Each structure stands twice: as C-alpha cells, then as structure tokens.
Amino acid sequence: MNKLLFFAGLKEIINADYLEMDLIGKTVREAKAELLTTYSDLPLNSVMTAINEEFALDDDIIEKNDIIAFIPPVSGG
C-alpha cells in the first residue's frame, strides 16, 4: 500500500490531505493516470512529484510503502 500526499489546491480537489492506494510496481506516470480516472480535474500534468521526499520522474517505479507527494507549482512575490 502507498500513501499519496496532496498539497495546496490539490487536496481541495480530492477533499483530503492524502489517499492510500496500491501502486506497487507502477510508474509515476501510471499512478497519475489511475488518479485521473477518479479525479479528472486534478492538474497532474503541471505538478512536481516526489517519492519518499525526493523528486521523482514520470518513469520512476513505485515500491512497497513508498510515500508519493504531488506538489503544485508555487507562485508568489
């Protein structure tokens, strides 16, 4: 099982701080696609993804007990 963390406006879209899903063996890209089947309004094409607090690429593989974070772009001044 994996814990998925969402930040800023993303957690408002899913109406939770995190989700738990079994994504073991899937790529980050596949995880995003699976999320979009339920939460089609998540802007996952513009977010940064981290696995266990390290930035990840879409081809990175998710392993057992990994924590995946989705971080939207930050703006400000």
Rank of each mutant, 00 (worst) to 15 (best):
N2I: 08
K3M: 12
L4Y: 10
L4T: 02
L4A: 07
L5S: 07
L5M: 13
L5T: 08
F6G: 02
F6Y: 12
F7L: 05
A8R: 08
A8V: 02
A8P: 02
A8C: 11
G9W: 03
G9F: 03
G9H: 07
K11Y: 00
I13E: 03
N15R: 15
A16S: 15
D17Y: 11
D17V: 08
Y18F: 14
Y18R: 05
L19C: 08
E20M: 11
E20V: 06
E20C: 03
E20L: 05
M21V: 07
M21I: 10
M21S: 09
M21F: 14
D22F: 04
D22W: 02
D22P: 01
D22G: 09
L23W: 02
L23Q: 05
L23P: 01
I24A: 10
I24D: 07
G25M: 03
G25H: 06
G25P: 03
K26Y: 04
K26N: 13
T27A: 10
V28L: 04
V28F: 04
R29W: 04
E30A: 10
E30K: 13
E30F: 14
A31P: 03
K32I: 10
A33W: 12
L36D: 13
L36Q: 11
T37G: 07
T37S: 12
S40E: 15
D41V: 13
D41L: 11
L42R: 05
P43F: 10
P43S: 11
P43G: 08
V47H: 04
V47R: 01
M48G: 08
T49I: 13
A50T: 06
A50Q: 02
I51H: 15
N52I: 11
N52G: 10
E53N: 15
E53M: 13
E53Y: 14
F55P: 07
A56W: 03
A56V: 01
A56H: 07
L57Q: 14
L57V: 09
D58A: 01
D58S: 13
D59E: 15
I61H: 01
I61M: 08
E63L: 15
K64Q: 00
K64Y: 00
K64T: 00
K64V: 05
N65I: 07
N65C: 04
I67W: 02
I68V: 14
I68G: 09
A69K: 06
A69S: 15
A69G: 06
A69V: 01
A69E: 00
F70D: 05
F70L: 13
I71K: 15
I71S: 04
I71M: 12
I71W: 11
P72G: 03
P73Y: 08
P73G: 10
V74C: 09
G76I: 12
G76F: 13
G77V: 11
